[in-house]
Nucleic acid binder design. Structure first.
Length: 121
DNA sequence: GCACTGACGCGGG
DNA sequence: TCCCGCGCCAGTG
């Protein structure tokens, strides 16, 4: 499925110091309903190793905490290194999407689509 | 081919 | 505003 290729492509283009949501990635891939597949792909590592999966959180801004990383706090440290503030809650580590959320637009989606097609000529 | 599962999201109560 | 329930769809057994 090229959906996964697109997901990988989008993830690698998440701006430094920002985080994106699963639904957002799915939307940028042209499949708004496939948020779960994004999480699945990231978890199983089907997107490749160089994909910054730690920049992807759920709609609430909470780090899923799934075992896609060597250690649990590794994801937190990586984000803090990029300047993303992490809050400790009962649900787990949380980010402020209003501050660090990646604001993508339809224009961005179109640009990503074009770049993706260009890469796969 | 069927049924269950999951790093999710949204709408109704 | 918070919580619960349903919808979604590719992978896997």
């Amino acid at each position: 499925m090229d959906f996964y290729k697109r997901a990988a492509f989008v993830c690698t283009h998440i701006p430094r110091g920002k985080v994106a949501t699963y639904g957002q990635i799915a939307l940028l891939c042209g499949k708004p309903k496939n948020a779960r597949q994004v999480g699945y792909a990231l978890g199983t590592g089907k997107l490749g190793k160089n994909v910054p999966a730690y920049r992807v959180v759920n709609a609430k801004g909470v780090l899923s905490g799934a075992a896609a990383f060597d250690t649990y706090d590794m994801q937190r440290r990586l984000l803090e290194t990029e300047g993303v503030e992490i809050v400790c809650t009962e649900e787990g580590f949380k980010t402020d999407l209003s501050k660090y959320g990646w604001k993508s637009t339809e224009e961005d989606a179109l640009r990503f689509h074009m770049e993706f097609v260009w890469e796969n000529i």
